[in-house]
Write a protein that binds this DNA or RNA. Structure first.
Length: 980
RNA sequence: GUCCGGAUUGCCAAGUCUGGUCAAAGGCGCAGGACUUAAGAUCCUGUCAUUCGUGUUCGAGGGUUCGAAUCCCUUUCCGGACACCA
């Protein structure tokens, strides 16, 4: 910290601790129902599986600054917070600890290291984490402490976790409402699955699942009818159904174990390793018999749609674990297929012997139509052949690497600018974006010649070494967002809301359009069971949409120790909609009345802050659910999407170890400074970079501000009229900035608002200090100090409380903090609750501001000139000629009477003051925008110069003379400067 | 793949929505000065070019306009978010 001379060193950390304790003790952030307008804002609850780092702190700080600003506006503000523990993450940690998984243990040990003093304590704590509830309990405690430590004004009396019975009841109610709205439906859904565990698998269950993500990929299983076997098919899974048109044969590894399955009324052949995939993806599957690949080698199959009889050939490269293990060839597109087929048809020969014509005599199925975009040129429009020849790959032997390379090249580049030919109704479809493939697939589906076949995006195994497969789960619960009426309602909600940043509102509407069927329940994890189907647990994103409304009654549920079993659907209906008869509900009537009062008073969410990455899912669902469950009058009002925080240009993440715990900020920099840095550094919609040097630099400005205000409070506040003109200038400037402050805040521009009242005002203070001396500055600051503190409270609340204390003690206020009677108005004691009530306009004198600007500009110009000249003894200031003033008058009056019409203005000038036509050519366009700037009459201008002569002399450090002559070059307020 | 966004003067980064007060905030870096025995820290000044008239700048090219960093079109290069995961 700065320890300059007589400056008082402030121990911010100490002050902050003191005020945080005061706030807590006096329940400053636990608002009661009163006659002020209410404002209900909140941020998404944090996930209680780790400690908070400085990145999380940004989100909560921004929301807190804005909500404290609402208090400045005189609102009764509620900001509650709960904790999210649904889903698998907490479970995964406790499982990891039970398993003694090293990675998990290290992470947990690191996370708790700040809260334990010995290794034994650490181990004991971790031991308790085998119960997931203890994980949630511990981390929610640390989170509460962290947020308190940076002065976030949260009403903790309403907190809950998503694992509590109260919450479960609320979610059950919510889902009953969604069911009523027709949103909750059941169907099939593909998920990653382990047949051995008989359960869905998440990222945590898959080996290296966090590093190399596994997703579900959608293949097409094409049915090749086996000749001579009725209703029996070889199922080949492919990503390129369009290649069917050049299918020449099936590849079947003779040694592969194959199973015959009965699926519905059909019989399918697949590799034995693929039995589970079929079993878990299709209905009515039974195992008929086993055989091996040799069975097919003398058989023929019919390629569907093209109706072509093709043979089955042995191929060692077949992989029983990929797809169905059985594939068809597409020699035109696949170099592998081409060479293998070639070697079967021409045993012992090399492809190099066939340069004049393509030996397999294939019919091309694609054609190049855009030679420019296509990076590979084809001789015969048989891409596989052409690329093999180009790369001089003539046989399969020792060429597996090369083949792989050209395959990649082909897939990557060949499809640009190709379209289908010789394929009947599909002719002309482009291969790009799989347009042709999708069309072929759809037609195959229509004719029941193919099925959807899901496969994992990469080969994956569980920690228990079972193959991860894709199961098409029966009975999956969905939220059906696809109905037009449902979408329209959500869009209506969005439409009537405020959205910041405003340009993303359109994207949000896009997400609403895009939402379709959303699986909303899972087989595993913590959370609420679906009331109609207890096997399913509501998935974490679906259980966190309208929960803000629970805050309105959660405090009372705890206070009245309500038996959660009594929280029936009817009770929630009564609480939220006022429907039903209260006296008939089997629940504490006093609670019921009070809780209903809460809902009626707080009514709806006024402000919701979410991370930008949650726009497409969380916020989307939130909008849907509110629009369906609540009446319009209870819809949320303002949404803000905020961005992440980086650390020195890098993402904050556990693995990088750059996520400094939030609670350290108080000791390291002071919470006020942290908040100030967050608020002033960037607007919430841009990614913010946390830089040590920047925050240190900011502390200098902050210290200066603190020091100035602190000193000013030692002075006596005087009557406005007893201040001098230059003092009034500073006061005017301040209240001008205040106007902008409110304007910026209305548009959720926190950064701009504080740049205005901190940087701008500080600059003006410095200028005033030069003009009138530091003493006078401190004196005049006393006049605005109280307002200034109120406006700064949202961003640096602790120091403002501390300084405000000085004012209170000066006032000899009869109200003391100890007064705790029911009607005690806390806002008199805490600046955190104080509204801004001054009418700044009364103290703004435009004339003083305008005049000072002329002086200011002059100083700037002269200083710049002096800088460039040596040995200046006298500065001569010369005014413009009288007719130049006339010109200005003419332009000004024309602008007023005829508007911004350059032609009219030029016409008048040419007529009355032709000597200035040339000058006007450059000057007039400048006036068209902002108008002509303020200027004085020649006499007043001279007066102004004379009045400030002494100030000029001291500023320039030399003699200053106001010339009696006129200058051609000068203009009103633009003096000619001569140095001697 | 789908959907968004960005490119600003040595670097980071405001400004763009709402065209004019924009040679363009702020920070870093750099240079000079004050203080100091000195260094550091701190404070002040400067930081596109300039013959101090002005000129040339906001990825590139074109357009609209009296006027474009800002609006429109084209183009190059970067980045972010994506559903069962919180």
């Amino acid at each position: 910290m700065n320890t300059n001379n007589d400056e008082i060193t402030i121990n911010h950390s100490e002050i902050e601790t003191k005020w945080q304790a005061q706030w807590k003790e006096n329940k400053v952030f636990e608002p009661k129902i009163n006659d002020k307008p209410k404002y209900f804002g909140n941020v998404a609850y944090p996930y209680a599986n780790s400690v908070m780092h400085i990145g999380h702190g940004r989100t909560y700080s921004i929301a807190d600054i804005y909500l404290r600003y609402q208090r400045v506006l005189g609102k009764n503000v509620l900001q509650p917070l709960g904790f999210h523990i649904s889903g698998t993450p907490v479970l995964a940690v406790s499982d990891g600890i039970k398993r003694k998984d090293k990675k998990t243990l290290t992470q947990v040990r690191n996370a708790i290291s700040d809260y334990v003093t010995s290794e034994k304590e650490s181990n004991d704590l971790i031991e308790t984490f085998k119960d997931p509830a203890n994980i949630a309990k511990f981390f929610s405690g640390t989170i509460e402490g962290s947020l308190d430590s940076i002065g976030i004004g949260i009403d903790w009396s309403r907190q809950f976790t998503t694992g509590e019975p109260m919450y479960n009841k609320f979610i059950e109610w919510q889902f009953s409402k969604l069911k009523e709205a027709g949103l909750l439906v059941q169907g099939k859904y593909p998920i990653l699955y382990s047949a051995q565990d008989e359960n869905a698998v998440g990222e945590d269950d898959i080996k290296d699942g966090d590093i190399d993500k596994v997703s579900v990929s959608n293949m097409v299983g094409i049915k090749f009818a086996v000749c001579g076997e009725e209703n029996t098919f070889v199922l080949c899974a492919t990503l390129r159904p369009d290649a069917l048109f050049c299918a020449q044969n099936l590849w079947i590894k003779s040694s592969m174990e194959i199973a015959k399955l009965k699926v519905g009324t059909e019989f399918w052949y697949v590799a034995k390793d693929a039995i589970n995939k079929v079993k878990y993806q299709f209905d009515d599957v039974s195992h008929v018999s086993d055989l091996d690949g040799t069975y097919f080698l003398d058989k023929f199959v019919i390629a569907p749609m093209v109706d072509k009889k093709i043979p089955c050939y042995n191929a060692e490269f077949c992989d029983s674990k990929h797809g169905t293990g059985l594939v068809y060839s597409s020699p035109a597109d696949s170099p592998h297929d081409y060479l293998n087929l070639f070697e079967i048809k021409f045993p012992g020969k090399s492809l190099s012997e066939f340069t004049d014509s393509e030996p397999l005599n294939l019919t091309p199925i694609t054609e190049t139509f855009d030679k420019k975009k296509q990076k590979i040129s084809y001789q015969f429009d048989i891409p596989a052949y052409d690329i093999l020849m180009k790369n001089k790959i003539y046989n399969t032997e020792n060429n597996s690497e090369n083949l792989e390379r050209v395959k990649q090249e082909l897939y990557k580049e060949a499809h640009f600018g190709s379209k289908m030919i010789n394929s009947g109704e599909f002719d002309g479809l482009v291969l790009k974006k799989n347009i042709a493939g999708d069309k072929v697939r759809d037609v195959l589906f229509d004719k029941n010649l193919a099925v959807n076949f899901y496969e994992t995006s990469r080969r994956a195994t569980t920690r228990g070494d079972d193959n991860v497969i894709v199961a098409n789960l029966q009975g999956q619960w969905f939220l059906k967002y696809s109905d037009r009426a449902v979408k329209d309602k959500a869009l209506e909600l969005l439409e009537q809301s405020n959205y910041f940043p405003a340009n993303l509102k359109a994207s949000q509407a896009g997400y609403i359009e895009w939402a379709n069927m959303r699986p909303c329940a899972r087989k595993r994890g913590l959370g609420t069971q679906i009331p109609y189907d207890r096997d399913w647990i509501v998935e974490p994103l679906s259980d966190s949409t309208i929960y803000q409304m629970l805050y309105l009654v959660s405090g009372l549920i705890n206070e009245y120790k309500i038996d959660t079993e009594k929280l029936s659907f009817e009770v929630f209906d009564y609480l939220y909609f006022g429907t039903g008869v209260a006296s008939k509900l089997d629940i504490d009537q006093e609670f019921l009345t009070k809780a209903r009062e809460q809902v009626v008073y707080w009514n709806n969410v006024d402000f919701r802050y979410v991370g930008m990455s949650h726009m497409s899912n969380h916020l989307n669902f939130l909008i849907y659910h509110y629009s369906l469950i609540f009446p319009k009058s209870m819809w949320p009002k303002t949404f803000v999407a905020g961005n992440l925080m980086m650390r020195d240009g890098q993402k904050i993440s556990k693995s990088k170890g750059n996520g400094t715990p939030l609670f350290r900020m108080k000791k390291q920099y002071g919470s006020d400074l942290y908040r100030l840095y967050i608020g002033v550094n960037s607007n919430c919609d841009v990614e913010m970079d946390f830089k040590e040097e920047e925050i240190v630099n900011l502390s200098k400005k902050f210290d200066r501000w603190t020091d100035l205000i602190s000193q000013s409070l030692e002075c006596e506040k005087k009557d406005f009229n007893s201040y001098s003109d230059i003092d009034k200038w500073l006061i005017s400037k301040f209240y001008k900035s205040v106007e902008l402050y409110f304007e910026h805040f209305e548009n959720f521009k926190i950064r701009e608002a504080y740049v205005e009242v901190l940087y701008e005002v500080l600059n003006n203070i410095n200028y005033h200090s030069r003009r009138a001396g530091e003493k006078a500055t401190i004196n005049v600051l006393r006049f605005i100090a109280e307002d200034y503190l109120i406006l700064m409270t949202p961003i640096v609340p602790h120091i403002c409380e501390e300084l405000y204390c000085k004012i209170k003690s000066n006032k000899n206020d009869s109200v003391t903090i100890e007064d705790s009677s029911e009607h005690f108005d806390k806002s008199k004691s805490f600046i955190s609750l104080k509204a801004y009530e001054t009418c700044g306009k009364d103290f703004i004198s435009q004339e003083i501001l305008d005049k000072e600007e002329i002086v200011f500009d002059l100083i700037k110009k002269v200083s710049a000139n002096i800088e460039r000249t040596e040995n200046v003894k006298i500065v001569i200031i010369t005014q413009a000629k009288s007719d130049k003033f006339e010109l200005f008058d003419l332009i000004k009056s024309t602008l007023e009477t005829d508007g911004k019409n350059p032609k009219v203005i030029f016409g008048k000038i040419a007529k009355k003051l032709p000597q200035y036509v040339k000058f006007a050519k450059k000057f007039v366009p400048k006036c068209l925008g902002a108008g002509i700037s303020f200027y004085l009459s020649k006499e007043d201008e001279k007066k102004l110069l004379m009045e400030n002569l002494e100030f000029f002399k001291s500023e320039f450090g030399c003699d200053v003379v106001i010339s009696e002559d006129d200058s051609e070059k000068a203009s009103p307020r633009e003096f000619e400067i001569t140095l001697e």
